[in-house]
Design a protein around this nucleic acid. Structure first.
Lengths: 220, 220
DNA sequence: GACGACCTGTCAACCGGTTGACACGTGATT
DNA sequence: AATCACGTGTCAACCGGTTGACAGGTCGTC
């Protein structure tokens, strides 16, 4: 039942697994499964059971010893840990193709990240309606973020504007940024950034593809 | 000058840094920089110089000892290693909002991944033109992939169809898949998959945001 | 031509994350 | 009540990746 104080001690790798645990557990819950053992859950996620238990151990007290985990308790516990026990509103900055695609992506709402503001500097896009939401002019950025209590922003502006926009976001209280621009953002330590760089991913994949084709991967 | 045979020995972490090296080097090249030391390059990428040299060491022979790296030689060398010294055509499966956004994303072409086929099962989308390319019906999938020699596919179909489509892709010779569907794909070992799970990223970010807001991150 | 500034290649120590092992708790069965 | 199958919490060994240190090469300068 002991809770760890400083979440900063949780390894990065574990943090990235938490969402996957939650995802799978919600799926199980939807099917009506009540109990799940570390082995079952781990196997379905293709990781080792010991690792899963180790991960949970950082937070402690998910189950009574000797008994499997209870899906019904684990889901809200994980949601609380991750910070999505209440909806976490997000803003999308940049209503180009990608921004629009994300605004339309219903899964965000469902998973606890309702889009509460879409912004663009281009007057042609401003006023456009996407999934029932207007694209707003950038000069409303600060107002809307404050009013809606938004903490997380998704950045889909061109690379050359990314840093400037980021600074505005930081000033008006944004704490987390998902960056789709192919640039590294400079932010204070009190702001978390996650880079989603498609091209980097593609290239890493390309490297592996080359390995596979040349036959110097795996047992040769 | 010694070349390592089995690229599979290159650590995952290094593979993911290679594209970033290339990206930055291209930028330098565009500005006319000819030489760059490991320290300069590493600092601009916010990593340690020793790590960069260590990474390059896997491939060897990028520079004459005692002299800094030559941008003009490094760029093609890295392109060759990553597998983008020649354009690597890709297909996009699923022409929904995300698929369209990616098809429109000019950066892919520029970086060596020209989109050579966009497919969708929805008759309403088939025939639509995106960036000068028609959305094709799924029944043309095999033909086009074979004709264009496509090795990498980007999967942007709904989760429930992802596995079925994947199997078709594998059968017709696709070796790398970028998966945007929130599902784990089952593929043979000879196929590389990279999952781009937006919601997982958002949740990891949300966790950190919560840490920051609660003040239990960093030096407290 | 000797010196010093600067560079890379290389290796060994270090560190964080992963994994296997096991102690201990629970409930069903005999 | 004893036993067995199955479960979690916990820890120590292990392993891969990161980091610092240094040997050895190159160039410009005095």
């Amino acid at each position: 039942m002991r809770k760890i104080r400083r979440h900063s001690e949780v390894p990065e790798a574990t943090i990235h697994r938490l969402p996957r645990y939650l995802e799978k557990l919600k799926l199980l819950q939807a099917v009506g499964v009540e109990d799940v053992s570390s082995r079952q859950l781990a196997e379905s996620l293709d990781i080792k059971a010991s690792q899963l238990r180790h991960d949970f151990h950082y937070f402690g007290g998910f189950s009574r010893p000797g008994r499997p985990y209870q899906v019904g308790k684990l889901v809200p516990a994980l949601e609380k840990i991750i910070g999505v026990s209440e909806p976490q509103p997000v803003a999308i900055i940049g209503a180009g193709h990608l921004g629009q695609a994300l605004a339309n992506y219903g899964n965000l709402d469902v998973q606890g990240f309702p889009v509460r503001g879409v912004f663009d500097a281009n007057p042609r896009l401003v006023g456009l309606e996407i999934s029932g939401q207007p694209v707003r002019d950038m000069d409303q950025l600060e107002d809307v973020i404050a009013r809606e209590g938004i903490r997380i922003a998704i950045l889909t502006v061109p690379a050359q504007h990314a840093q400037a926009v980021t600074e505005r976001l930081v000033t008006c209280g944004i704490v987390g940024i998902v960056n789709f621009a192919p640039t590294d953002l400079k932010v204070p330590k009190t702001v978390a950034v996650r880079n989603e760089r498609l091209v980097v991913g593609l290239m890493a994949l390309s490297f592996k593809v080359k390995c596979i084709l040349e036959g110097d991967c795996g047992a040769e």
